[in-house]
Nucleic acid binder design. Structure first.
Lengths: 125, 125
DNA sequence: CATGCATATTCAAATATTAGAATATTTGAA
DNA sequence: TTCAAATATTCTAATATTTGAATATGCATG
């Protein structure tokens, strides 16, 4: 069962899947991020979100529909209310990352400074 | 200097900043994700990426330019090569998250099933 | 200082995203 | 059954993104 790790054997590391990139695209909108952040705190109905977001109801519904089509959220009915909730466990972790503060950038690689020639790690030249 | 935490006082939790949403948008493209994943492994010049991505050079440069404009990557010159490298420490963590496998969705909240009325947590009705 | 390699820029066409307006649907209550 | 509340859908105009083609730039080398 247990064998060499993928990297030790030269097998390709699992890369980011097409589906995950689609998910990223679906999330990458200020309104949808706010919706998701709100849903992290608990179930919300459309009119709650409408008030919170301060945008028009049809637009809220459009964003909710998009998120639902991607399997990121879902809803249940409560009377005439649609109670939306978070479905994808990836989302809270993603939001946590997005809220994290990073104080410094990575340093430039050692083969700088700029004008020093011939150090390209790939072997080309 | 030190005081109560934001949450203990009812102050709004820091939400996702506008800048972070912009960063998400910049990242949310299959080619750019591949570029970033590749740069995670080390410095790459444009023609290396061109070969790896199998798209035309001007297009590679366009994506690189976009990422650079967002402060996500930078480059140094090595002779006539532009050696691009990762600058934003957020990226590797994000890629790690994107590669993570999630086996189950969150369960629907307890106030289901659908027809049970009057349980909306927000108090409306 | 001319040449060629590595890369960037500009432009245009195709396509995708977004938000609003108008309208439709669904459900519970009277 | 009728009405009103809650939400969804459709259509459209504005805008943004993406790509390819053509071309330009910068630098190292002879």
């Amino acid at each position: 069962m247990v064998g060499k790790s993928a990297s030790s054997v030269g097998v390709k590391e699992p890369s980011v899947s097409w589906g995950k990139v689609e998910l990223l695209k679906a999330i990458a909108h200020p309104v949808r991020i706010m919706i998701l952040d709100e849903l992290t705190k608990g179930v919300k109905c459309v009119s709650d979100l409408e008030e919170f977001l301060d945008i028009r109801q049809p637009n809220v519904s459009q964003h909710l529909g998009l998120l639902r089509m991607h399997g990121i959220i879902d809803y249940y009915m409560d009377g005439r209310l649609r109670c939306y909730f978070l479905k994808d466990p990836f989302i809270p972790e993603m939001l946590g990352l997005l809220k994290k503060q990073y104080n410094e950038d990575f340093p430039a690689p050692v083969c700088c400074p700029v004008t020093k020639r011939g150090k390209y790690p790939g072997g080309r030249r």
